[in-house]
Design a protein around this nucleic acid. Sequence first.
DNA 1: GTCTATATCGGGATAGAC
DNA 2: GTCTATCCCGATATAGAC
Lengths: 221, 221
Amino acid sequence: MSTRGEETREKIRAVALALFQEKGFDGATMREIAAEAKVATGAAYYYFPSKESLVLEFYARLQNEVDEKLSAALEGHRELRERLDAALRLKFGLLRPNRRFLGALVRAGLDPENPVSPFSAETTTLRERSIGIFRRTLEGSDVKIPADLAPHLPRLLWLYYMGLILFWLFDRSEQQKRTDRLIARSLDAVATAIKLSRFRVAAPLRKAVLGLLSDLEGDPV
Amino acid sequence: MSTRGEETREKIRAVALALFQEKGFDGATMREIAAEAKVATGAAYYYFPSKESLVLEFYARLQNEVDEKLSAALEGHRELRERLDAALRLKFGLLRPNRRFLGALVRAGLDPENPVSPFSAETTTLRERSIGIFRRTLEGSDVKIPADLAPHLPRLLWLYYMGLILFWLFDRSEQQKRTDRLIARSLDAVATAIKLSRFRVAAPLRKAVLGLLSDLEGDPV
DNA sequence: GTCTATATCGGGATAGAC
DNA sequence: GTCTATCCCGATATAGAC
């Protein structure tokens, strides 16, 4: 890939993300993106195999930003619920301006025929980095997590996070305020559950959850 | 709507579902559906406002079938996990042949711009009927459920069921065997959690979960 | 009310020339 | 690497037959 190609690609990407934010995924057309980037439609498809793949590009950049800003966001928080809250606020804060087109990614992955899935092997790296965010969030907290559960908890929290994103995408309330409430409320439940997990009575449940997780591990979710 | 219209509508619906199963949602075109049903394209759009609405129609029929067959499926089962397993097997058994196009429904709803959502006000009836399946499943079981949790548990199980469907749609393993494993494993956890819910130590968690649910109740999820 | 026939539009994606 | 031309699709509109 030459420098010129690199520049063209970059131009198309930048224009696309701007238009996605402005008009949403369906509202922004490939013709328009190409025109505004001053290339032919075909050129856009030379660099990006599909419209969805442009969104995937966005997601990778977002993950970089989260990685960079996490330490600052967690600064000064030791309590588990506070730390989780800070991490989620950071993630959702960056997602928020892009809700209008983020659904496109999930939509693409939901089609069993579509190879561009956010859960595919190609996106394993991204997924693991996202899980890593929760590992870092848990590590600095003051809560004792049972040894058997500890290594699996980040992935479990990531699944919870995926659930929140999904709810947020569906959420048609004004400014998605219902999602804000859901996050606050569910964080109470999640933090409470983690704190209770070390009790004797919770052992069978912990065992069941661990069996579930070890079953999923290895393959991409 | 006369008998003739009814027949035409039925014909289009039947052909569409057959083609969806055969070629998936995107693979089957409206032109083809209309042609195979021996009507003009316009006629298909006369009865169904969009391609997605054909899928919605399918979903309603599916719900009817579940309602009819539930009693037989639960027959002879008293143990909670067994009953839930039977209910889920029934639901997924009917969904299975239609995986290739079922994603289309969810996809439509994920687009914040698209009014045809499976979680919209229009589909409230369907959603409530689906929740009712879990109510019936719980009612005949031998497990004592705390009084505060009991009225909300069916909805909670329905959310769990939605999660399973989502996983299943994303699941690219052969024959979606990973979903089968997930169902078996997660049922262990769910049944265990329900049984533990009445213990003293679980009270704060139960309270947090109930707060969450009461927050969501009323509005469509 | 129930369609047929047809034209039209804008969109994603692609083949092949350059 | 890039562009032009083209294809096929979903969707809409319309005029008119029965």
